[in-house]
Design a protein around this nucleic acid. Structure first.
Length: 386
DNA sequence: TCCTTGGCGCCTGCATTCCC
DNA sequence: GGGAATGCAGGCGCCAAGGA
């Protein structure tokens, strides 16, 4: 009789004992008993025990349910020790859940973030970081981001475009236009804090022990620039972890790194296919653009007029002469209106959404500490809707 | 070539026991 | 007492063999 081939015999898949160990590790990290996890899986505790011991191999259905409940991917359950650079990366390996992390252990991902440590923002950022970590502890949520943050890539423009496309796939949005990227970031476990900053429009810090980040966005800038800044910081973080992996200086050439991060943000927020499709639907030719049409289209992508104008030029969808004229119009508008976005912005953000959710849960569980955190956030003008 | 049948082994449920 | 481990039986899917 022909030998039956099961998942566990697939050469790329880890053996059942290791898979079982991974399931056990993830279950414990999620603070679940076998009984509780089995209940959520819709199975009994006994069979789950057999899975963890490697006596049985989980069916595809069980694997999918496990991944959903344990907030991970089937790939990570099956290939917990996948080597770096296969397609994605060292950070796919399960990072330990570090509960006693001090804000000073976080790595600044840009010169701005590094210099902020000695700026008036320092105390506020450290306090917000500590409170965010405390809320994660109280709520017992996984600390690791649900997307890999260490990826091998080329910093050439084409490489950054591929990287942006890869992240759009990881976020599950493909070429679609997304109205609120902030929600995407937070849904994938990234910590984003909107607060007043004096030293920079945005800052980010890499949390290596947990495979996550802290991104701080200044509330004093308009939503379009906040969104672009958020994507830019993701690019910054990836450049930082790439440099660390390659044992290169952390920030590289500052101006060049900024340019690369901005290109990543442009490709991430304005994917080529989506921009070309939107433009094609208007029938506009490269030499026909006016400011009104540019504003109408840029609203769909939630970016600034300036950023959209650059992207059109990058994709040869506008002539250089017209792009220059529109850039001058946009600049004079910014000068006259304190960098407010031209046209009526349709962008409505819900900043600090995840922070608010954590605070809400924490208030349910630990009234005193949560109340103190709530008061501190309020004092720092970190507005949290609950 | 297609369908049916039987063998095999995984996966699961249930009940029970063990261990801290 | 709660969590974890074990034993047994049944369901199910896959595969090979045989027959129409």
């Amino acid at each position: 009789m022909k030998k039956r081939v099961y998942l566990s015999e697939e050469p790329e898949i880890t053996d059942s004992v290791t898979v079982g160990g991974t399931i056990r590790e993830l279950r414990r990290r999620a603070h679940l008993s076998q009984g509780e996890l089995a209940r959520r899986l819709g199975m009994r505790q006994g069979p789950l025990c057999n899975l963890e011991q490697g006596k049985h191999f989980p069916s595809a259905q069980v694997l999918l349910r496990l991944a959903a409940i344990l907030n991970t991917t089937t790939d990570r359950i099956l290939r917990p020790e996948r080597p770096p650079d296969s397609d994605v990366t060292p950070s796919r390996q399960p990072a330990p859940c570090v509960t006693s992390l001090d804000p000073s252990e976080l790595a600044p991902t840009s010169p701005a973030a590094r210099s902020s440590i000695a700026s008036p923002d320092s105390a506020a950022v450290a306090s917000a970081t500590r409170d965010y970590l405390a809320l994660e502890d109280i709520c017992r949520v996984p600390r690791q981001a649900r997307i890999p943050l260490q990826i091998a890539f080329s910093t050439a423009p084409s490489g950054m475009a591929r990287l942006a496309a890869q992240f759009r796939t990881l976020f599950g949005i493909g070429d679609a236009v997304v109205f609120d990227p902030l929600e995407l970031f937070e849904n994938h476990g990234l910590r984003v804090v909107f607060m007043p900053l004096t030293s920079a429009p945005r800052l980010s810090f890499y949390d290596a022990p947990n495979g996550n980040v802290f991104i701080f966005i200044n509330t004093g800038i308009n939503p379009e620039k906040q969104m672009f800044g958020l994507a830019c910081e993701l690019g910054r973080i990836l450049l930082y972890t790439r440099a660390a992996f390659l044992k290169e200086p952390p920030f590289g050439r500052t101006a060049s790194a900024d340019k690369v991060a901005r290109h990543f943000a442009a490709c991430f927020l304005m994917p080529e296919t989506a921009v070309r499709t939107s433009v094609a639907q208007t029938g506009i030719r490269p030499d026909e653009w006016d400011l009104d049409l540019l504003l109408r289209l840029k609203h769909r992508f939630g970016v600034s007029a300036e950023a959209f104008n650059y992207r059109l030029l990058e994709l040869d969808l506008i002539t250089p002469r017209l792009q220059d004229e529109l850039r001058a119009s946009i600049k004079s508008h910014y000068d006259a209106h304190a960098f407010a976005e031209p046209g009526q912005s349709r962008r409505i953000l819900s900043p600090n959404g995840r922070l608010g959710d954590l605070l809400h849960t924490a208030l349910l569980r630990n009234e005193r500490e949560a109340r103190e955190i709530s008061a501190r956030l309020k004092k720092l003008a970190i507005h949290v809707e609950r």
